[in-house]
Write a protein that binds this DNA or RNA. Structure first.
Length: 467
RNA sequence: GGCGACGUGGCCAAGUUGGACAAGGCAAGGGUCUGCAAAACCCUGAUCAUCGGUUCAAAUCCGAUCGUCGCCUCCA
């Protein structure tokens, strides 16, 4: 079995083969920083974090680029409203977003380029496009000439005639074709601007990604990702720009995640229909967000409801249950029993890989992990000792880390000095229980519960864990 | 109007290049354990939107119908 990925370009699952053996060049469109990021951005970041982690797990060396668009109409508008400098606004929101990514356990990108730091490369590409007759200068702006690109529309699978038939855009009299898009925009007073052969101005939205790709990853890349709302026009235009210049296929695999739905429609900063990442994380663990995504197919829409959040929360608890230690007083299992669990761990790893190889089928992969959870818990209930559970638990840990789950607090490690005091309280409570002072022992349990410590009694004794 | 996706048990959801058993999670009910609780474990449920067709065989292919949604305009 080998990895297969669905590509929007061919609308099929394709065998994954990299340009350079063993290496993956991957670019994911990051946010336009004019407002704090919402959990839809988190979904995209997490989806591609999982893809990246899995590629690494499969032995690839991954160069991962996620850009920031820090010059754009909306940023300028927002900055003008608040009186903040647009560069400062961008800077601040980039810092916020990077903190969001850390909090979400998204691995840092290899490179985080910004549009404003790529202006020279952008201008160079525009000049090349003009030289090739694929772009033209009109009234201070530069536009890409879509008629010149005979396979324009191949990513979104539509043709120019269809699009023009349904176009509702205002016709710009300077454009040769209404579908032509801006590569360079002439500066208006008070806007950030750079010198160029066409006067002071700033780049259009799509050219920056072409330029950043080219500079940091080269003419051809393996994976280009983003939300499926970017397929058209953004990614279509990236293809047009880059391929017109290089004459070579741009990205081998175009991957697009589905939209997170809230109140029946996609989250959007512009309509205010959103939950910010920091708002979500104030209420829930980052694992919960990730679990919601893992339980669904990354390409389809994901509906955000309180019920889905609650289910994800419980599912995380269930995964954690497998890491609980042996029962107090466990007598151990005959070797055959322990070996069976170890074998099941190996089987789980194979099943996990088979699922993930099939276009990152996380929901299927999760199913296999839960099967292992059950096996571990059954074996524990049968009296296995810690060492007899260890191999299977190690596999589970390995695979949940591939998915980017932290599953912290599953044991007492790292909780510092509190543990020994809690041990003491639990031991005292056991004495109290032995004397059948149940109202007092329940009070201890209840008080600890409020502090986030759950006690579980069994015949052989009591254990506890942080919640 | 154009392009596209989807409809699996109460909820989320895998499986959909036809072929054993329709994974898994949540919720619910019954049970084991327990002073109680919690956890864990055991048991219980769907013929796959509807209709028709192809086939030895269909959730999986074809057609129709109904319904939901996305994109075509800034958006992960």
């Amino acid at each position: 079995m080998s990895l297969r990925l669905y590509s929007t370009l061919t609308r099929k699952k394709e065998d994954f083969e990299t340009i350079e053996p063993g290496k993956v060049r991957m670019y994911v469109c990051g946010p336009t920083v004019y407002d704090k990021a919402h959990i839809g951005h988190a979904m995209s970041a997490i989806v591609f974090d999982i893809v990246r982690r899995y590629l690494m797990y499969r032995g690839y060396e991954v160069t991962y680029v996620m850009n920031f668009t820090d010059v754009d109409d909306k940023i300028i508008k927002r900055a003008n409203e608040s009186g903040e400098d647009s560069f400062q606004l961008g800077e601040r929101l980039i810092a916020d977003y990077q903190q969001n990514l850390v909090d979400l356990n998204v691995l840092p990108a290899s490179i985080h380029p910004r549009a404003t730091q790529e202006i020279d490369g952008i201008i160079a590409m525009i000049e090349e496009l003009i030289a090739k007759g694929a772009a033209y200068h009109a009234n201070g702006d530069v536009y890409f000439r879509v008629d010149k690109d005979d396979d324009y529309g191949k990513l979104a699978h539509r043709n120019l005639d269809d699009m023009q038939a349904g176009a509702r855009i205002e016709v710009n009299p300077h454009k040769e074709n209404p579908m032509d898009f801006a590569l360079w925009k002439t500066a208006k007073p008070g806007e950030p601007a750079w010198d160029s052969p066409w006067g002071k101005g700033r780049p259009g939205w799509h050219i920056e990604c072409s330029a950043m790709n080219r500079r940091h990853l080269g003419d051809q890349i393996d994976i280009h990702g983003g939300g499926n709302d970017l397929i058209f026009p953004h990614h279509e235009n990236e293809i047009a720009q880059t391929e017109t210049i290089t004459g070579k296929p741009f990205a081998r695999y175009w991957m697009h995640n589905g939209m997170l739905q809230l109140n029946g429609e996609a989250m959007s900063k512009s309509t205010g229909n959103m939950i910010r990442i920091e708002e979500f994380l104030a209420e829930h663990d980052a694992d919960v967000m990730r679990m919601m995504i893992l339980n669904a197919s990354y390409r389809g829409p994901l509906t955000y409801t309180d019920e889905v959040v609650a289910m994800a929360e419980k599912a995380i608890e269930r995964l954690k249950s497998a890491f609980k230690p042996a029962l107090p007083g466990a007598k151990g299992l005959p070797p055959a029993g322990a070996d069976a669990l170890t074998a099941q761990g190996e089987q789980t790893r194979a099943n996990f890989i088979a699922a993930m190889d099939d276009d990152i089928n996380t929901a299927g992969a999760l199913g296999h992990l839960f099967e292992l959870v059950k096996a571990i818990n059954v074996t524990r209930d049968e009296g296995a000792q810690d060492e007899q559970l260890a191999d299977a638990q190690a596999v589970l840990r390995e695979l949940t880390e591939v998915l980017g789950l932290r599953l912290q607090d599953a044991d007492k490690a790292g909780q510092g000095d509190a543990a020994k005091f809690i041990d003491l309280l639990v031991a005292l409570r056991s004495e109290v229980r032995a004397r059948k002072l149940f109202d007092l022992s329940d009070k201890i349990r209840g008080s600890l519960k409020e502090l986030g410590v759950a006690i579980e009694d069994s015949r052989e004794g009591s254990s506890w864990h942080f919640e």
